[in-house]
Design a protein around this nucleic acid. Sequence first.
DNA 1: AAACTAATAAACAGAT
DNA 2: AATCTGTTTATTAGTT
Length: 707
Amino acid sequence: MMVESASETIRTTPSNQNGVSSLSSQSDGGGGREGGSNGDTNGEISPVDLLHLQQQQALQAARQFLLQQASGLNSPGSNEVKQSPVQVPVSMAMMSPQMITPQQMQQILSPPQLQALLQQQQALMLQQLQEYYKKQQEQLHLQLLTQQQQQQQQQQQQQAGKQAAKELGSKQLAFQQQLIQMQQLQQQHILNLQRQGLVPLQPTAAMQSLQQAMCPSDLQQLWKEVSGVPNSEEALKQAEGLDLSTNSSNSTSAFPKAASAHIPLHSMPNGQSHTPKRDRARLFEWISSFTKADSGDDHVPLYSKGTQPPSSHHEEHVSSHPLYGHGECKWPGCEALCEDMGQFIKHLNNEHALDDRSTAQCRVQMQVVQQLEIQLAKESERLQAMMTHLHMRPSEPKPFNQPLNLASSGSLLKRDSEAYPEGLPHPPTSAATPITPLRQGPSVISSSSLHTHSHSHTHAVGPIRRRNSDKYCTPIASELAQNCEFYKNADVRPPFTYASLIRHAILESPDRQLTLNEIYNWFTRKFAYFRRNTATWKNAVRHNLSLHKCFVRVENVKGAVWTVDEVEYQKRRPPKMTGSPTLVKNMISGLGFGSLNASYQAALAESSLSLLNSPPLVTPPSAASLNMLHVGHDDVSSTVEQVNSNGSCSPTLSPQQYSHPVHVKEEPTELEEDSRPVSLLAGITHSLPLPSDERDLEEDLPTEELE
DNA sequence: AAACTAATAAACAGAT
DNA sequence: AATCTGTTTATTAGTT
């Protein structure tokens, strides 16, 4: 994530506009969106610089906007904050406003908010553009005049000749070309930035891209419409003003032509009023061109192949519509109530037909999606790094925090989940994102990592009595599903009680019954940890089976199998986590993540992840998830677990593998005692299940969170 | 501090 | 006889 440096922020202040030298070129290939100007304008402010400036201003305005929003959210009276489409903890933004990146901003602001911002910024930009071009033209005019004077003098002195006249013409041409070039460069710059995804897809960026595709009047009209302001003469006036200013100098008459020349879609001669029909066709063409270009870009591959392209109003599903939910139209900024699907479709066709407004909104939504995808990619990358790091961890000597862990694994666990700092390996990108509540909260991995550490010392000193409080580990199904591979390969003690593990194993089996040996095998198969100290944990398993009433021994033809008495199991464990609905809601909305206690966070994270992780099982998740969370945490997990028991627990384990447990059976028992640590490590390094896991998350999270 | 839960250890019995 | 399975008791440790 990019952080605005102080110097860059300073540049945004108008008073600093004279600092021409600071705007010198620094073409950025892919590092950042800053710089990238081209010293093409004789030491004057280049168009690119101007854009940069506007961008920065937009950013600042957005920041202010955000702060307002945040303070509004934070006020005690406004507990019932309407959930914005993109759920990002405001606290993140609150911490240090100047650290807010455009992306974060984009995330935090809802489309309507973005639109408002856009409108605001657009006015500003137009004004500045006007000023800028006026300045440029004046200057050019001046230069032309002096040139002409010189020429005249020359003519007078050296008697007029054809050559001189020619020279004059060429010089005039040169100036014209210079202007054109400037314009082109500006356009190109924006285009490039956008293609590279480097433009902070901020209000300004969206505007610029719009601007790039349309003439000023188009732009004006579009945004007037988008923001709900009736398209009045004022807009035209403003547009005209801009056009006039550009045409004011005879030497710049070529500008509009040039501007339109290299924008393929901009076929309209400037100032000419065009029919809505043509306009629409053009817009649509523009949209599809954008989509096409996007799909070609492998930087954001998810998008074009995604489930719902932005122009989803073309496809109307009979049963459900992505833009329709909870009796509301989900079109950005629209919350029209529609009783049924028919009414909604009617509404969709009437209110959101293919017109300028819809197109613009669509555009904004595209930007939002694109931005989210970028963000997602970054987060995924971070997660990957974290996982890689943690996977490597057991192999590393950890002298520094060893005594700490020995003291008490449990208390360490608590402390860690509250705030991970101290001796623990920090997830990367600490510099870029000093405060990311999301990282602390729903990271299933984090809990695993904690056990990694506490566990690794267990071996050093012998068995410690590890208390796996159910609080931390109730949603065994999701945790397992998430980190199945991890536990399989890493010699990490799973954060579950024996009882819950046994139950899970049994419920996971096809017949919901297992022999003792099969349970053993399940343990060894699923957890590297249980490939050693077999006498100990097997004894524990037996002990648990006998002790807990929830495990019922059933005599079989071939012997005996163990089953689970679910009622008894639930009886045994009183619901420890019963958050108030409002609290849970707040947590979900991301507002409370920062202050909530760790167990709540973890539990929430896991439960929500479990929902996300089992799409085929919990078919309509959006509506159900909230309600289920209200019921209580245990219920969620148990529900999922039960349903889950039919299928596979992990994406990497196919059902077939389950149906042939015999194959795996003999293996572990033979090499069990002190099994090969080398191969274990090897497994750790090369078998990273993350890609697939992340994929699932990637596909599910955004749609979930956005609802 | 007490009550509770879970992990661990171990003794023991019956079955294979 | 050895091992597996199952039960039971005791101890320890962590949590509430």
